[in-house]
Simulated assay, not measured.
Amino acid sequence: MNIFKKLLFITIVFFAAAVKVNAATVDTVLTHSAAMRKDIKAVVIKPADYSATKKYPVLYLLHGFSGNYSDWILKVPAITKLADQYHVIIACADGNFAGWYYDSPMNKDWQYETYVGTELVGYMDKHYSTIANRTGRAITGLSMGGHGAMYIGFKHQDTFGAVGSMSGVVDIRPFADAFGIEQVLGKYNEHPETWEKNSVINMIYLLKPNSLAITFDCGYDDFTFQVNVAFHDQLLMRKIPHDFTIRPGSHNWEYWSNSIVYQMLFFSRFFTNAK
């Protein structure tokens, strides 16, 4: 091997080692839900600088309707770079393909508010080096997961300090005949009070100004656009500070892969300012 080839070989080995050192770690873990009496998988992304001697904030990232815990890492693998860039652990939770992140009054096997809002958080704090209070926790998601993040965040303000939503179904009532919501809450015409009290747009009364750091966005061509604008208007009327962004785009992964970049910046600033 001549000198040039040796130098090239050394350079390649060094570069490969550097890439390995500076890459996030993606774990698929098996968590347990006592509420549902079963084990549930989650994806946990640790930043490259992860160390048991440091404490890290955690972003809980929720999937949409018909998805599962692996959606985000499979569809947007670049979220590993966001974990590295902002030194944040990302926990991709499972909310069942149509669980809507509720504790369902219709199906005791679907208790996903308790799972995500309490049991998964407990698992993360036990098994990872986390900032184990609301100053180090944020939750967001897309579509059904955007609804779930706001719903859980509003109801668990002692657990989460920041919430987000991407193309979120922040008002479920216009979608009474779609996306399996009636399997979770019952039919709207039979249980209207349940639908009313469990629709995020009707839960703003739970907030006080600055009690949560709030960010949400929606594409102009998204079918959830109108409910997101209405949600924004209600927050303004009640004088609840928040960030709301409208961008070109629709209800798809191209939009969400862009949206998560801006939301991660928002949450990173929250984590920094909350220290």
Rank of each mutant, 00 (worst) to 15 (best):
M1S: 13
M1Y: 12
N2Y: 13
N2M: 10
V13H: 00
V13N: 00
F14C: 14
F15Q: 09
D27M: 12
T28H: 03
V29D: 07
L30P: 00
S33V: 03
A34Y: 05
M36R: 06
K46R: 13
K46L: 15
P47M: 11
P47S: 07
Y50F: 15
S51V: 06
K54L: 13
P57F: 14
L62P: 03
H63L: 04
G64K: 07
F65V: 08
G67A: 07
N68L: 02
W72T: 01
W72A: 05
K75T: 13
K75W: 09
V76W: 14
I79M: 14
T80D: 01
K81G: 11
A83W: 14
Q85R: 12
H87K: 14
V88Q: 05
I90W: 02
A93Y: 09
F97K: 14
G99P: 04
G99F: 00
Y101P: 15
D103S: 05
S104A: 11
S104I: 11
E113R: 04
V116A: 01
G117W: 08
T118N: 13
L120N: 06
G122H: 06
T130C: 14
N133L: 00
T135S: 10
S143Y: 05
S143K: 03
G146A: 01
G148C: 10
G148F: 04
I152Q: 11
G153W: 14
H156D: 13
Q157E: 15
F160A: 11
F160E: 10
F160M: 13
G161P: 07
G161M: 07
V163G: 02
G164P: 09
G164R: 04
S165F: 11
S167W: 03
G168S: 02
G168Q: 02
P174L: 08
F175Y: 15
A178T: 08
F179M: 13
G180H: 10
V184N: 00
E190V: 03
E196H: 15
E196L: 13
N198W: 02
I201Q: 05
I201V: 15
I201K: 09
I204E: 05
S211G: 01
S211M: 11
A213R: 13
I214T: 04
D217I: 05
C218S: 03
Y220L: 12
F223C: 04
Q226N: 12
V229A: 08
V229K: 15
A230T: 01
H232C: 05
Q234C: 07
L236N: 15
I240R: 12
I240C: 13
F244V: 09
F244D: 06
F244L: 09
R247K: 14
N252G: 09
W253F: 08
E254W: 07
Y255N: 04
S257L: 03
N258C: 00
N258A: 11
Y262H: 08
L265S: 09
F267E: 05
S268I: 00
N273D: 15
A274N: 09
